[in-house]
Design a protein around this nucleic acid. Structure first.
Lengths: 187, 187
DNA sequence: AGCTTTTTTGAACAATCATTCAAGTGGTGT
DNA sequence: ACACCACTTGAATGATTGTTCAAAAAAGCT
């Protein structure tokens, strides 16, 4: 077979799972070939290097995450309700036994010390997500207030993503969020 | 020289820096020998394996962190003031150009997927820290309230630890904390 | 059919990985 | 002075790392 027997996006999705769970350094090319079904040669033919592959997987994850935010916002009656829905879904995710937090956060932590460009990318994407929340909150609140609320929201989301690793944390987290972000229940 | 020309704790301190910055997988034995000045043979003579060495380094970091909490609490007039001091110090740390967050959190994220025992240890230590905060808060508040506040505090601390990676985040974080944890300014 | 192009294959690459070990070194106790 | 012990040394271990490449295989084009 000389024609591609795979699709770039399918490969990326499988590779996202691997990198997301194990991180960059702990994911070997051997594991990548097993997870995707592609031989090393094909991997390097399609994606220049392990780093480039990771970069692309991370970018796909980021754009999917951002898309998911917009979608959830569109499906709810108002901004605060949308944010509450997003937070609820985050908590739901943390119940899974194979919970592995947020790919962007993990990448940021793993690769920060190396001054790696992947770190910068992850960091920028997280900053971008904050900006998106700021824009949505600007629909209801003043610009200053929206910025402040978005920063609070990001801090709490970061907190949840780490707290979620604790056993049986879901119930506690819900109450914690309500206490930390009382303005979410306005209206 | 046939007598030890190093001290266990000095080696651990140097190794903590390395593992803390780079994580477990990305830190090679070669780097460990360079950072400590010990040859591979000595490392394995003193510490059974890379994993055992990491374990011990992480334990030392954890007990040092906990000690630091108690110390700061002892040096301030009341519990809330102590917590504010701890948070202020966290923010100060995040200004450093080689900021690398919290070793326990990083370990938890890196090693969670492997069901590694190091992950459990890190997770337990973080839970332990929450318990410590709960005890301190119980001096001022009811047991229920103290538990709730401690959970909020941990969530915010986790949030700060991640948010701290964003460029120039220190000023924003201070305002965010004041908004998220208004009860810190009681009295 | 024949030529070109694209993709797959799987072995092979040098480098690095964590770990081991026999030999060397020097202080301690007798 | 001698044996013993604790520790250091540095080379060597086999396994695994990320990456390359020549050869094969299949489709498109003329």
């Amino acid at each position: 077979m000389a024609k591609k027997n795979y699709q770039r996006e399918d490969v990326l999705d499988k590779v996202i799972t691997l990198f997301w769970q194990q991180g960059y350094a702990a994911s070997s090319v051997q594991q990548i070939t097993k997870a995707t079904g592609l031989k090393p040669g094909s991997i390097y033919h399609e994606f220049e290097s392990k780093e480039k592959l990771f970069q692309e997987a991370l970018a796909r994850y980021a754009s999917s995450s951002i898309g998911s935010i917009h979608q959830k916002m569109a499906n709810t009656s108002n901004v605060n309700e949308g944010i509450k829905q997003i937070l609820t879904d985050l908590i739901e995710q943390s119940k899974a036994c194979d919970y592995c937090g947020c790919f962007l956060i993990k990448t940021q932590l793993e690769l920060a010390s190396q001054g790696n460009s992947l770190y910068k990318f992850a960091s920028e994407q997280l900053a971008n997500i904050e900006k998106i929340y700021t824009q949505y909150l600007s629909l209801t609140y003043s610009e200053v207030q929206a910025k402040a609320y978005a920063a609070q929201l990001m801090t709490v989301i970061f907190g949840i993503r780490i707290y979620g690793y604790q056993a049986d944390s879901a119930n506690t987290i819900i109450q914690t969020i309500n206490a930390l972000l009382p303005w979410l229940n306005e209206h």
